[in-house]
Amino acid sequence: MPNRKQAAPPRPLVVGDVVAAHSRDLGEWTVAQIVQLDVDSQTAAVLELDWSGPEPSSVADLGDVVPLRLTHHSWNGGLSFCNQEWVLPRSHKVVGAIPLLHDKPANCWTSGWHLGDQLARQRRWDIGVREDPVVAWKADYTGDTVNEFLGRSTAPRPEVTQLTIRDIDSLDCAQLVQRFPEVAWLHLHGRLGLLSGAGELNRLHSLQRIRIVDLFGMTRGDCLRPQRVPELESVDLYSVPAEYASAMRSTWRREILAGTYVFILRTRKPEWVAENRSNPLRDWDGRERISASTYKRAVTQYKTTRKAILQVFAEEAADVQLACMEEIGRTYGEAFNALDRRSGFIETVEREELFAALDHIVNESEALHGPALEDARDSLISGVDSVRDW
């Protein structure tokens, strides 16, 4: 949601309005009707219409329009109808109003306006095409694969306008912009990774939407500037440096009235980054079923266990390491027994992550102090298994 609640959408929008936008999926313009506006949630209920064609100048250009009904995949004839943020994107326009084609509230919510996506899927389904097509203008990489690509001497890919990169440990934005100069939608998802040269993203003059999650290294000076990326209509930041988030918020809040949606959540101070980049349980922060207090206690226990294991590797003689590791394992297992009794949050995934955290500590210890006895890791796990209830 926008950071400050408003009494009406920042761009003029009323119930009954028909909104038009160009769809890359369709290669044409398409339309939707605003069915409801909710001040409390700052959302608009948007009903997609079964129409596409040349850019309309008014509703008269649409002819007789009807709601889009979906039968593709698991849909059973329901309307393409959902609540989304009520900031009408810059690239969308109101072409007039018509009587409401539906008068009931929407029962689903989504982020981002994607007019045309469902209509394109439905039309493919209607002609018997069951899979989404592979298109040159969409690219999806992992951090490792994109860095391998950026490291090669290959030509830029100007045809790519939607770029998603996941599991980023490190990424050079200067190289990214050089290889993908025409990106309009950019989604960067890190593993508490480092984003260098983020200010270079200002060279993406066609940029419309940016989403950055769990990436760091950006400073106030890396802020995107409206005069450099004038088409930007969505700023979505989650778990990024606080100073970068502050600069982006103050810069782009002024652009909300022009059609830029601003959503910034969980900004991180340098101390948090330093503490959590090496914390293998960091994904528990905010996870459903894991309260803030449980997460805090879990991290405290992880740090206590890490300190104890590092001390054994650094100070204890080989003949006592195994016994020490087994005792550390028992303490670890009992501590998480007590935590799990409070809320029963440890399931298969969490159990695997708790053992992975121990592996992480042992690997770190061996990197610092050299290999331990061959059975040290087994003794640690044996200690956990002898007492754990999870």
Rank of each mutant, 00 (worst) to 15 (best):
K5Y: 07
P12N: 10
L13M: 14
G16E: 04
D17Q: 06
V19D: 01
A20C: 08
R24K: 12
G27I: 05
Q36L: 03
D40G: 08
D40N: 08
S41V: 07
A45Y: 00
V46A: 00
L49D: 04
W51D: 04
D61F: 03
V66S: 15
P67T: 08
L68Y: 04
L68W: 07
H72F: 13
H72E: 01
N76Q: 13
G78Q: 11
L79S: 02
F81G: 01
V87P: 00
P99C: 03
S111A: 09
D117R: 13
R121A: 15
W125F: 14
R130S: 11
P133E: 10
A136D: 15
T145Q: 12
N147E: 10
N147T: 06
E148Q: 13
L150W: 06
S153D: 15
T154D: 11
R157C: 11
D167V: 02
S170I: 08
D172C: 13
Q175G: 15
P181E: 09
L188F: 06
G190A: 08
S196Y: 10
N202F: 05
R203H: 15
H205T: 15
S206V: 03
Q208W: 03
R211I: 01
I212N: 00
I212L: 08
I212S: 01
V213A: 02
D214S: 12
M218Q: 10
L224Q: 02
R228T: 06
R228Q: 14
P230Q: 03
Y238C: 09
P241Y: 03
A242E: 05
S246E: 09
T251A: 04
T251R: 04
T251K: 01
W252N: 00
R254A: 11
V262N: 03
F263E: 09
I264D: 04
L265Q: 13
R268W: 08
W272S: 04
L281M: 10
W284K: 02
E288D: 13
Q301N: 14
Q301A: 09
R306D: 03
Q311D: 15
E316Q: 12
V320W: 06
Q321Y: 01
G329D: 05
R330H: 06
E334H: 12
E334D: 15
E334N: 14
F336V: 04
A338S: 11
E352L: 12
F355N: 08
A357V: 11
L358M: 14
I361A: 06
H369R: 12
P371V: 08
L373K: 13
L373E: 13
A376Y: 01
R388Y: 03
D389C: 07
